[in-house]
Design a protein around this nucleic acid. Structure first.
Lengths: 150, 150
DNA sequence: GTACATTAAATGTTTTAACGTATATTTGCA
DNA sequence: TGCAAATATACGTTAAAACATTTAATGTAC
C-alpha cells in the first residue's frame, strides 16, 4: 500500500516531506513486526540488538560504553538493559581488569542460542520484505545519502 | 556516513538485512533531529503529528479513532495525547452530537499557530536531508514496496 | 603526591509508552 | 421492546525512555 493510502493523506508539500513521513511510518511498521516475532522469545528489540552486538564481538567482551555507542537508537541506559539480560542469564558481567571503571559484558551460550532461534524467526517474519537484494541495496544507499547534510 | 561505519559493523548477512538495520538507524536519527527541533515548542513528535492530522481536517473535527488510525506509529492511547494537547490549549474536545460515544477533536487557533512556527523550524532543520526531490521519490517508492509481502 | 578534570557506569526521578481491560453508547436483530 | 454484539474511548498498571545526578577510577598538571 502506498503511503498516501496508508495514512490517508492525499497530498504532501514535497517529495522530501513524503519520504520523511514514509520513513517514520515504515520504521514503525517494521518495529511492530520485529517486536511480534521476538515476543515468544521474551526479549525486546533493544535487547535483541544488544545481543547481536555482543555476538559480533564474541568471544571478546564489550564495555557498556561500546554497546551504547552502537545501539540503533541512542539510549541513555545501556546498563539497565544489560542488567535485564543478565537476569535472564543471556549475558555475563565481569569487572574489566585493565580499567576497573569498565565492565566487560559477554554473551553466554544461552544468549547465543536464543539469538540463533530468534534470528530464524525474525528472518522469516520480519525480514520477509518486498524487496530483492538489488532494491535493498538501493534503499540502503538512499538512506545513507539522506543522512548527509544537503 | 555509510551505515557500516555508523554502527561499526563491517559485514551484513544480506543486503536485505543491511537495509532493515539502516532503516531503523535512519529513523532513529531522524527522530532525534525532529525531537530537537520541536523541543523549544514544548511538544513531542507524536503531538506534532497529531496536530498535523487535525490541521488536515480543519475546520472539521476528527474523532479519536480517526486520529489513532492515521498516526504514524500505532498507538494505543490517542486519547491521552489529545488530553495533553488540550491541557496546552492546542486542541478542543467536544462531545459529538451524532454519536455520543465519540469525541470531536478540533485544533485551536493557538494550535494552528504553533504548527506554523514549529513547521518552519522542522523544515529547515529536520527536513534538510541529503536527497533531492527525485531521490526522495525513489526512496518513498522503495519504502512502499518494502511493506508489501514478498 | 595532591588537586582537578575526565571518563565509565550506575542510579534516581520524571515523563511517556504499552497492554490489557473497563465503561458507555450505539447498532442489529429476534 | 429487549438484549447481545460491536464500537469509541478512557483508564489502571506496569514497563521503558529521557534527563540529570552520583560514584568510582583514571589521567594530568603542578
Amino acid at each position: 500500500m502506498k503511503i498516501e493510502e496508508a495514512i490517508k493523506q492525499k497530498k504532501f508539500d514535497s517529495a522530501t516531506q513524503k519520504a520523511v513521513v514514509n520513513l517514520m511510518y515504515t520504521a514503525s511498521w517494521m518495529e511492530s513486526m520485529s517486536a511480534a516475532a521476538l515476543k515468544p522469545h521474551g526479549i525486546s528489540i533493544q535487547q535483541y540488538n544488544l545481543l547481536r552486538i555482543l555476538r559480533g564481538q564474541f568471544p571478546n567482551p564489550a564495555s557498556v560504553g561500546l554497546l551504547q555507542e552502537r545501539m540503533l537508537d541512542r539510549m541513555s541506559n545501556a546498563s539497565r538493559l544489560v542488567e535485564k539480560l543478565r537476569l535472564k542469564k543471556l549475558v555475563e558481567r565481569r569487572e574489566c581488569p585493565a580499567d576497573r571503571r569498565q565492565v566487560d559484558v559477554l554473551i553466554t551460550p544461552a544468549g547465543l542460542e536464543l539469538l540463533e532461534k530468534a534470528g530464524q524467526r525474525i528472518q522469516s517474519d520480519a525480514y520477509a520484505i518486498g524487496l530483492n537484494e538489488k532494491e535493498a541495496e538501493q534503499l540502503s544507499d538512499l538512506l545513507d545519502k539522506m543522512r548527509m547534510p544537503k
